[in-house]
């Protein structure tokens, strides 16, 4: 790790209600703090963090940006073995910060730096269960100025080296050596969060949860209206054939000669790029 002395491993947990109810008429989202908690991906991230912190003889801290009812989630993290927890407070009525990946990242980076110090590794789930776009870890890497590896399915730490596995298209895997410090997001795969022992659970029930205010310097961008893109309808002249049956055939495109789709399979990226360019040129796009 970057610092040999007690490297800091941070697990970011997003507090969401995976069973939120949406009113079909008003579109209002009803959430219940009792049912809310970390997503499965976040729970995986915590388990990774605990294991890596153990392997690196580091400190594992669980951090969440959420209102007060989320303390339950941090108590669970403590019970599972996190060395410390931190709650970055946001008012429960104001969803602007948790809804924006960039502002969340800014608030978290600020809180982590001032309260905990420079992290060696930040782990989080790849997507949150609710409105999260998965952009928070990328923004966070930018804020902290460190490497990022997102959407990982496996993480292993040994001898100061962090190795990761990422899913690619068509069943392929990408093996990554992640330089530290880094921000990594993990998919809910491979492992499950350990079950907390009773003594640590009892201790966590009465522990005090430190809180800092999630101050945001600039107003986050608020979308006032969002509409799907709808291209304008284009009028086409009817086919010239006199026979209605033939006109119909022309419209449906049956019996017409067509070029079959071209599938390019190559392992060489340069070759693939050439193929692609030639294709676009042939179609008159370039």
């Amino acid at each position: 790790m970057a610092e040999p002395l007690r490297p800091l491993v941070v697990a970011l947990l997003r507090w969401t209600d995976a069973r939120a109810r949406i009113d079909p008429l008003s579109g209002e989202v009803e959430t219940d703090p009792r049912g809310a908690g970390p997503s499965e991906a976040d729970r995986c991230a915590l388990e990774h963090a605990l294991r890596i912190a153990e392997a690196a003889a580091g400190r594992c801290v669980a951090v969440t940006l959420a209102p007060e009812p989320a303390e339950e989630l941090l108590r669970d993290a403590l019970a599972c073995g996190a060395d410390a927890v931190l709650r970055v407070d946001v008012p429960s009525w104001d969803s602007r910060v948790p809804d924006s990946g960039a502002t969340t990242a800014r608030a978290l980076a600020h809180a982590i730096r001032t309260e905990l110090g420079e992290p060696s590794l930040v782990l989080t789930g790849d997507h949150s269960a609710d409105r999260g776009t998965g952009s928070t870890p990328a923004f966070l890497a930018a804020e902290l100025g460190c490497a990022q590896a997102l959407g990982l399915v496996e993480l292993s730490y040994a001898d100061g080296e962090l190795l990761a596995l990422r899913r690619l298209d068509r069943g392929r895997r990408e093996r990554l050596a992640v330089p530290l410090p880094a921000v990594c997001s993990v998919e809910p795969a491979g492992l499950r969060l350990r079950r907390a022992a009773l003594p640590s659970t009892l201790a966590a029930r009465t522990a005090t949860i430190p809180v800092v205010t999630g101050s945001v310097a600039a107003e986050p961008v608020t979308a006032h209206a969002a509409r799907p893109f709808r291209p304008r309808a284009k009028e086409l002249p009817p086919p010239p054939e006199a026979d209605p049956r033939l006109r119909l055939l022309r419209l449906t495109g049956a019996h017409e000669h067509r070029e079959p789709p071209r599938v390019v399979v190559t392992d060489d990226p340069a070759e693939a790029a050439d193929e692609l360019l030639e294709y676009l040129r042939g179609k008159g796009y370039l």
């Binding site: 079950r195 907390a196 022992a197 009773l198 003594p199 659970t201």
Partner: peptide, 9 residues
């Protein structure tokens, strides 16, 4: 006894 590890209370 509870179902947690180390679970006797």
């Amino acid at each position: 006894r509870t179902d947690r590890p180390d679970g006797d209370l």
